[in-house]
Nucleic acid binder design. Structure first.
Ligand SMILES: [Zn+2]
Ligand SMILES: [Zn+2]
Ligand SMILES: [Zn+2]
Ligand SMILES: [Zn+2]
Lengths: 165, 165
DNA sequence: GACATAATGTTATATTATAACATAACTCGA
DNA sequence: TCGAGTTATGTTATAATATAACATTATGTC
């Protein structure tokens, strides 16, 4: 059973997130090592900020987090965007288009395109991999060669339906 | 047979686009009249600019088109964004999140969520309605109440595969 | 016409993202 | 280990996208 199959909706379930973070970080290190890519301290810093939750963060939120750590340095946007580009390139994070935000991938290296369920109440995001067969078929019928897919479903998660309005 | 079933991939097929425009415009007028909504001249102007093609346009492209018509007025962004909000609210246009752009709906009033196939070569967009049953089921399993869905597939259309690289 | 409401217009500014160039750090063979 | 090539980071300025706040005008209703 793949990590994904176990963890697709992890954001919406109680879990040991410390462990979750540790596993994703060490997984990322291994993955980069295997590919001879460098998970430098800047890239790691950005990755760790995203790892803190299963919520999407804007580039400027990340920037603020980096500038908040008490040290004197003032980081500028390109540094964040470049780290984000690297992490996306390696499949360690995803961009949530409908929020102009970024989130850690729960199963780095997955081949199948991801889908996201985004709760507009608690802002948590579940990453699924239920490939849409009918859409793939429709694209094939049209002779359309798929590069990249964006599937982002916004709504209210089960927990937030119970509690709030 | 619904207009959608006939026209879903219309952007990628040769067709009488004059007629296409006329039908979508008169359809929009009827739809607004039925709902007692006002398709004012500003809103109509923005709608007609989008109707010119089956390609997505950015808000500032639309703005530029409005300011290019020779008359002296200089339109400001809020005017465009408000017209776009109205048109989206009525389902006459859609927002393409992955391009920060807007496009006319090919079947205003459709109930089912739309999916988009976006050619990165010719920039045309096909609007489909092949609802993803497995994703809907996965959301239901999680007790997730869906509000809004964004499905945007980027790639290369059949025609562009033939011609270009 | 007077009023309430909806739409438009105006100004300023917020938010998101990148271009262009300077410096520093790593890599790897000579 | 030196230095040339490459990759990564840092810096400055600016581009591109979007909205807040408020003034004015148009529309419908009595
Ligand atoms: Zn976790
Ligand atoms: Zn993923
Ligand atoms: Zn057409
Ligand atoms: Zn549509």
């Amino acid at each position: 059973m793949s990590r994904k199959a176990q963890h697709s909706d992890i954001a919406f379930r109680k879990h040991d997130h410390r462990r979750c973070q540790r596993e994703l970080l060490s997984g990322a290190q291994q993955l980069c090592a295997r590919r001879k890519q460098r998970l430098t301290s800047r890239r790691r810093q950005v990755f760790e900020i995203l790892l803190a939750s299963h919520q999407p963060l804007g580039a400027y939120d990340i920037l603020a987090a980096m500038n908040r750590v008490g040290n004197l340095e003032r980081i500028a946007p390109p540094i964040v965007y470049r780290a984000l580009d690297f992490l996306m390139g390696e499949g360690l994070i995803h961009r949530i288009e409908s929020k102009n935000a970024f989130i850690t991938c729960v199963d780095p290296g997955h081949r199948c395109a991801a889908q996201f369920l985004i709760c507009r109440d608690c802002d948590q995001v579940a990453e699924l991999e239920t490939e849409d067969a009918s859409l793939v078929a429709a694209a094939a019928d049209l002779g359309f060669a798929v590069d990249h897919s964006v599937v982002e479903i916004t709504g209210v998660c089960a927990e937030c339906q119970k509690h709030g309005g």
